[in-house]
Amino acid sequence: MTAAPDVVLVSSSDEKQRRLITNALRDRLPVRTATGAETTVASLDDSIAVVAVDATTVDLSAGALDTDDKRTFYQVLWLDSAAETTVEQVDAVLDRDASGEAIRTTVERLQLRARYDWLLTTFYELAAVGESTDTASDTARDREQELEAIKRELDRVAAQLDDSDAFDIALDE
């Protein structure tokens, strides 16, 4: 089982904006930065929980971030002044001039969504592997304990999400 995604990728070619966003997040979340479209897409691995795109300075479309890779769980925060990209295309949209507090609150919510998605996928994959025929074996006990631990964590995270977020993530909408 891979580790849960927790990194925030901040994508901006504007150093001042990059610093503003990373300063708002760094004391609570691990942050990486990218300065252009190519490095942003190349950085989207399974450790990324949220990618925050400064759309004014990075030439990216929302579609370019929509990969078919089932091992990634990142959520997309779009920071823009033109407001041409909507929450139907990404996971959250904020004005580029949003406060650090607003960015932090939104990123933490998106990180929770990404964690829930990862937990749901991990739980299903482990459950679908099937039980060992020898239910007394250490492997069977380990699997059962792991399933119980993931279910407890799923319930804990679900309690922090509203119905809209929880069903959005669960049903991949």
Partner: peptide, 14 residues
């Protein structure tokens, strides 16, 4: 089955 599994995780939590 996977979609139902995910749906049920939200429902059972609620």
């Amino acid at each position: 089955q996977e979609r139902i599994h995910r749906f049920l995780n939200v429902l059972t939590a609620r």
